[in-house]
């Protein structure tokens, strides 16, 4: 296991749409002030935001945890919400259980998880009905690729 050089966790509040996105913004700004690889920050920010919105919209109380290693960063977004019945189905482009209310707000295209998978260098979704959901992603700096 490579050494974790730095760790920080940000809280995500259930159904709090007013502050939705703030955890990802904090994580992004942290990476920016370290002036890490710009492309990696961009990809990680997109994934952090999608993940955070999923927690707010579908999940429960949650966390966005950021760990920085020498040449990569790990994002773990977890919540204690209802969980996903069929994770394979959830990964399909266009699959969404978002309510009409959220669709009116522009969410619910069913593109969040596929987008995260596309932008992350490693992606892992795990969930248990009634217990919660966890998405773990890794991003490598260009130097490491």
């Amino acid at each position: 296991m490579p050494d974790i050089l730095f760790e920080k966790s940000f809280q995500i509040n259930k159904k709090d749409f007013v502050h939705a996105g703030e955890a990802s913004i904090s994580a992004k700004n942290l990476l920016k002030s370290l002036q890490m690889d710009a492309g990696m920050i961009r990809r990680a920010s997109i994934c952090a935001y999608e993940g955070e919105m999923n927690v707010v919209m579908h999940g429960g109380e949650g966390h966005l945890a950021l760990a920085i290693e020498k040449n990569r960063i790990i994002l773990e977004i977890s919540d204690n919400g209802p969980g996903i019945a069929d994770t394979e189905m959830a990964m399909k482009k266009g699959f969404s259980t978002a309510s009409d209310k959220f669709r009116e707000l522009g969410f619910g295209a069913g593109m969040g998880l596929p987008n995260m998978k596309k932008n992350a260098d490693e992606f892992e979704l795990s969930s248990r009905l009634g217990e919660g959901t966890r998405v773990r992603m890794a991003f490598f700096t260009d130097a490491a690729v």
């Binding site: 913004i25 992004k28 961009r42 920010s45």
Partner: peptide
Amino acid sequence: LEKIEMGL
């Protein structure tokens, strides 16, 4: 600008 940076 924050949102654009988040890919929106």
